[in-house]
């Protein structure tokens, strides 16, 4: 697969840019967290495209952001569960 570049992104519409980034990020995230991959990818797509490109190039950077996103997601879900219990 051809690596995604900034110039490739620049040629696309904003909505398409996120789609392209998501398609590249998803399989990498799925390797780390198979059941949460869709949600984590959705969260990470809120980040700037330039940083997302960097994450695609740097395993270390991607890994740390994914772990950050998982922590936020779990805290969010725990809060929801607590609220439902009353």
């Amino acid at each position: 697969q051809v690596p995604l570049t900034a110039s490739m992104l620049a040629a696309a519409l904003p909505q398409e840019q996120k789609q392209m980034l998501g398609e590249r990020l998803y399989p990498l995230i799925q390797d780390m967290h198979p059941t949460l991959a869709g949600k984590i990818t959705g969260m990470l797509l809120e980040i700037d495209n330039s940083e997302l490109l960097h994450m695609l190039e740097s395993q270390e950077s991607l890994h740390s952001k994914v772990e950050e996103a998982v922590a936020v997601l779990q805290a969010h879900q725990a809060k929801d569960t607590a609220q439902k219990k009353g």
Partner: peptide, 26 residues
């Protein structure tokens, strides 16, 4: 408002159009 939103975050599904960001300026 407590800011809670059980639908957050939007889920990305490969092969489907991404609709998570509806408010991007063209």
């Amino acid at each position: 408002s407590n800011g809670s939103n059980i639908n957050w975050p939007p889920e990305f599904r490969p092969g489907e159009p991404w609709k998570g960001l509806q408010n991007i300026d063209p």
